[in-house]
Design a protein around this nucleic acid. Sequence first.
DNA 1: CGCGGTGTTGAGACCTGTCAAGACGTGTGG
DNA 2: CCACACGTCTTGACAGGTCTCAACACCGCG
Lengths: 240, 240
Amino acid sequence: MTIETHLKKMRWRDRLSAEEEQAIRWSVGEVVTEPTDKVVVRAGEELKQSMILLDGWMARVKDLPNGQRQITELHVSGDYTDLHAFALKRLDHDVVTLTRCRIALVPHERLREITERLPHLTRVYWAATNIDASIQREWTMSLGRRSATERMAHLFCELDVRLGIVGLVDNGRYDFPLTQAELSECLGLTPVHVNRTLQDLRSKKVIEVGDRQVRILDLKALRSIAQFDDDYLYLEKRDR
Amino acid sequence: MTIETHLKKMRWRDRLSAEEEQAIRWSVGEVVTEPTDKVVVRAGEELKQSMILLDGWMARVKDLPNGQRQITELHVSGDYTDLHAFALKRLDHDVVTLTRCRIALVPHERLREITERLPHLTRVYWAATNIDASIQREWTMSLGRRSATERMAHLFCELDVRLGIVGLVDNGRYDFPLTQAELSECLGLTPVHVNRTLQDLRSKKVIEVGDRQVRILDLKALRSIAQFDDDYLYLEKRDR
DNA sequence: CGCGGTGTTGAGACCTGTCAAGACGTGTGG
DNA sequence: CCACACGTCTTGACAGGTCTCAACACCGCG
């Protein structure tokens, strides 16, 4: 995968001019590879660049003093994992790899230049961070109001859509490299209960999870369990 | 309260030039008053303006098809309640009043002009929406990993800081107009359990809640219960 | 061959939810 | 001024979802 994956995702929601696409390509500096389970960005540190994930899975993680962890968002190919760091300068959470990852680094200096010269692209990227926030809002709702089964079904629906956008879903099947422990950190559950909830979904014959991949057997039923509505993913073109 | 409250909050995190402050003042159009419990913005509708809350309390609410509700963020005087609507054009949640509110309306046309002419102010506002997202992330963490008592303590710590910024805390005391039912929608609990959790905090002699106000008796203990750390509120000046 | 990480299962505890009833305060209308 | 309705807060008994702790199976890998 290349930076084209990121462009593909951006084009899903906005019409980008040739100049803007060129600016995006120009903004990318070094491409690096990071191993599994590496804390790529640590909460609080001063940041001079942001990252576009080309290949692999990453996550935003918040730590509690007592050692508990909450994953607040998952990132897949084509995602800007910490574009918000450009405006914030430091983050309130870690950014970690969940698999081996290829990452394109974007110096903030270049993003700054985009905000100086390309107001429309700036608004588009602004919207991108807002959509991240929207996803987080949906997770908040899941944690507050959905049962374990619903919450899990919802996550798999979300990933189905987000991976679909960048062509990573094949016939209801997609790679899913998280361990049950990591999944439990997304869903606010214990690993044991994640295991039981997976069995519940499996027994309902809507989804199979295992072997580092997800297989959706009955998307309609899965969405119905999750009360899933993709509005919050803003999959539409708008003038910005 | 006037638009000055909003400026006060902005100045907490950024040095604004005279031109930028003027642009903010210029951006404000009509000021309107809305009654309690009004849905001011409904999820999905096309938006042409955003709102700065001058007086009162508002909230972002997400509805589930089955009628359950989750409040994903509370807004107080000086907050932009839906600045993200500028880039997104529609929202994935409602924005509602919790009290009688005075609201300044800001046409998106003027925000657009700011993004065309004032890149620094644009980055500052971009950061503002990112801080909203950070608050939401912290709520996600609360819902995922903190117990009812911790979660509630955390919320009251957060409000203590956020209201303090705009001068609405007097000696550990601040107005708090939410009903226990509304509080339960913030915390992902039932109203009954909110009642019991309040009694728990009260019996620990750290806080008293009632009569539409909060009185913090022992801030240190409250913060310790909540494992509160205000990093996520970004209360520092940075060059953007 | 043994080890660590991951997944699975069982029993019991605990936190939070559900349901129901009553107390209290406030505003309204007779 | 009283009667009443309504929203809010409070309490109790019980149910249920999720957690805790512990043990074991499985597997890839050194």
